[in-house]
C-alpha cells in the first residue's frame, strides 16, 4: 500500500519543492506543496506539475489526492 511518505518522495523527486506535507490513510491523501515552480502559473498548471511528478502512479496506485499548491511567497504570507 502507498504511504504518505511514498507520495511525498515521488513529488519531491519530480518537482523542485521547498516544502511538502502529505497525510492520508493509504487510499485518500491530502498534500500541501510549496514550490518556486508554481510562480506565475494558474492553479490548473500548478496541479498539472504535481500530477506530472506523480506520473503513472496517479493512475495506478493513488486513488485520491487532494492538494493545496502554494508559491514560497504565499506560504510565507500564510504563516505570518
Amino acid at each position: 500500500m502507498v504511504t504518505p511518505q511514498d507520495i511525498k518522495g515521488y513529488i519531491e523527486k519530480g518537482l523542485n519543492c521547498q516544502f511538502v506535507e502529505v497525510a492520508g490513510d493509504g487510499h485518500h491523501f491530502e498534500a500541501i506543496i510549496v514550490s518556486p515552480e508554481f510562480a506565475g502559473k494558474t492553479k490548473i498548471a500548478q496541479h498539472q506539475l504535481v500530477y506530472q511528478a506523480l506520473g503513472d502512479r496517479m493512475r495506478a496506485e493513488i486513488h485520491a489526492l487532494s492538494m493545496k499548491t502554494l508559491t514560497p511567497e504565499q506560504w510565507l504570507a500564510g504563516r505570518k
Binding site: 490548473i44 496541479h47 485520491a64 487532494s66 493545496k68
Partner: peptide, 19 residues
C-alpha cells in the same frame, strides 16, 4: 488532467474538486 471530477464552463476547463 488525470482525475475526476472535472468542471468546464463555456468550453473551458476550470479544474477539479480542489480548485
Amino acid at each position: 488532467w488525470p482525475t475526476i471530477p472535472q468542471l468546464y464552463i463555456n468550453g473551458e476547463f476550470i479544474g477539479g474538486s480542489d480548485i
